[in-house]
């Protein structure tokens, strides 16, 4: 009964959090209104989003967010150093194809976003069958290491989150 009423608890929680953030004051009325949104929005949108993935381990999501936030800070400093101190002729940009083990569209979207936000890499496009992702790297001497880092650091964690 409860799972039919709230098919996606995490989405509902996110909506409540976003609503409380938008109104910026925590009152009972706002909490109730936010809960109404959290209850009805997933219900009404379910038809437009078939095969919605289930999050297997919510705590892994928190771990993933912290890892990515830390990497974004590191990425900023690294890219800033490359921009400021590396002579233009020494910047070696490369394309790196990364084979994907993830299959769900949502998981690949999260991975592509993560790649763009983190060290010196931008995700450019997917293979037509979604089996690989093409990454552009601002500067690297060792493309294989970049590929392995994406696979072990982000994709492995996403595999645990989206089974």
């Amino acid at each position: 009964m409860l799972t039919r009423l709230i098919p996606h608890p995490l989405l509902s929680l996110t909506l409540i959090f976003v609503w409380l953030g938008l109104v910026n004051t925590f009152t009972l009325g706002n909490l109730i209104l936010g809960s109404v949104f959290g209850l009805f929005v997933p219900m009404f949108t379910a038809a437009y989003w078939p095969d919605r993935p289930r999050i297997a381990r919510p705590f892994k999501v928190a771990e993933y967010i912290l890892v990515v936030l830390w990497d974004i800070v590191v990425a900023n400093v690294q890219v800033a150093l490359i921009i400021l101190f590396k002579p233009e002729s020494k910047i070696r940009s490369q394309w790196i194809p990364v084979p994907l083990d993830l299959t769900s569209a949502e998981a690949i979207t999260v991975l592509a976003g993560t790649i763009t936000m983190t060290p010196g890499t931008v995700s450019a496009t997917l293979a037509a069958d979604g089996s690989a992702i093409l990454v552009h790297c601002l500067h690297t001497d060792d493309p294989d290491a970049v590929r392995d880092e994406i696979k072990t650091r982000y994709e492995r964690r996403l595999m645990e989150i989206f089974p």
Partner: peptide, 30 residues
């Protein structure tokens, strides 16, 4: 990331061909 991705895609479609980027690891192209 979505903005960056769209700029990259538009640039690839306009200025690069499939010979300019490495092959995919599977049997389908980019």
């Amino acid at each position: 990331p979505i903005t960056a991705n769209f700029i990259a895609k538009a640039y690839m479609a306009r200025n690069l061909g499939d010979k300019d980027v490495p092959e995919t690891t599977g049997e389908y192209g980019w």
